[in-house]
Nucleic acid binder design. Structure first.
Lengths: 211, 211
DNA sequence: TTAGGAGTTGATTGATCGATCAATCCAAGA
DNA sequence: TCTTGGATTGATCGATCAATCAACTCCTAA
């Protein structure tokens, strides 16, 4: 039983996608050569190009795998043992923090890295990236909706969910660049303060005003 | 008088750096070949390698130029005509919005793009990126300090300034990926709401409290 | 038992990459 | 005027890139 390399009981195509997923996350798309993928997957170039017309099609397959993995690989592990929907959001952020910490602030969000690395991606790639962001945002949106009654009535829930993604991605970017968790933690702390204030009923100093 | 290509009255080295700055911003570092730079700068490879030992040294020079340009090229234009320090912060964000809008959401923040494209940058590159972030954050921090009395006393000003950068970078990333200003605008709107709440005195239901 | 095709092998292709270097140009100092 | 050295030229290098393809293996269905 070989454990090195991507699970060798899988088909070659699956091994290639899993290896590419890992390497694209580690080194980016452009800096990962087809030869790198073939070597680490233990496959030959003919096998790759039998399963995928081009390297870019392999990338699209990787992005599809990320999309399908959001629920079972990302959300579910982050949320087990956390009941409060808003705390689930922060548990999700904490999972990114763990990832940063475990890798010395080199790994972050592979989707975000790819999104900024590929400046003018072909439509299928750009759409696959957007679908990943949408899936993430929708998951957070679901948690916010579960806490709807704790938030101001006029809150734009979708926009707030996008904002959570924004804070995560921006924090990861800075933490990776500074090789320090400080920036990520600062972002989460400020976001928590914002949620605190959202959940605190407004001034009501006199009485009327504010709908 | 040639106007095409980077100002031809400059030295060859300066033309190379300016051309590289533009191309690295447009296509990223890895996707910009030395041949691209030479062609658009109207120079020969020998000239480049006479001025810069490697392509990476050219990148470091570009990052230095960005750093030196923060004040005169970014902040000063964004802030003219805006007096309120907090509004200056949002004017800065608006300048990024303009940039996104003018380019169909393809350009964003070149520093952020490079920061995520280069996964394991050599120390001088990583440090040059970090210096750029620091300069940006310090500028925002200065505006927040100018509005110190309007913010809660216990506010972590530096962390809040980093948070502004986080929101900008995260918003740019999503807007570029979705090819739509919506995500960026949503981020700015939520940030504005947060600043609103920061500037609104807390509940004061009874009376005491507040340090 | 055999025919056929999906899957695999690995050498090879042409293009492109960053970088090199001998030759040449040219302006400033002696 | 001659000398010197920084700046420039442009052909060229070896490495590496994504992609190709004829040959081969092996499973399956007839």
């Amino acid at each position: 039983m070989k454990t090195q390399r991507e699970n060798s009981r899988l088909t070659t195509a699956d091994r290639l996608v899993l290896t590419a997923m890992r390497l694209f996350g580690e080194k980016g798309y452009g800096s990962t050569s087809v030869a790198d993928i073939l070597r680490e997957a233990g496959a030959n170039s003919g096998s790759l190009y039998h399963a995928f017309p081009t390297k870019q099609d392999l990338l699209v397959a990787v992005l599809g795998l990320y999309r399908d993995g959001i629920e079972p690989m990302l959300l579910e592990p982050a949320w087990t043992g956390v009941d409060d929907p808003i705390e689930q959001i922060f548990a999700l952020l904490a999972s990114y923090r763990s990832r940063l910490e475990a890798t010395g602030c080199t790994y972050g969000c592979p989707i975000g890295s790819l999104a900024l690395e590929l400046h003018e991606p072909d439509p299928p790639v750009r759409e696959a990236l957007a679908v990943n962001f949408d899936g993430w945002v929708s998951a957070v949106e679901g948690r916010l909706l579960a806490a709807r009654d704790r938030l101001p009535a006029q809150t734009d829930i979708r926009a707030l969910a996008q904002f959570v993604l924004t804070v995560m991605e921006g924090g990861v970017m800075q933490s990776r660049t500074h090789r320090s968790l400080q920036a990520f933690d600062a972002g989460v702390t400020v976001l928590r303060d914002y949620f605190q204030r959202l959940q605190t009923p407004p001034p009501t100093p006199d009485s009327t005003e504010r709908s």
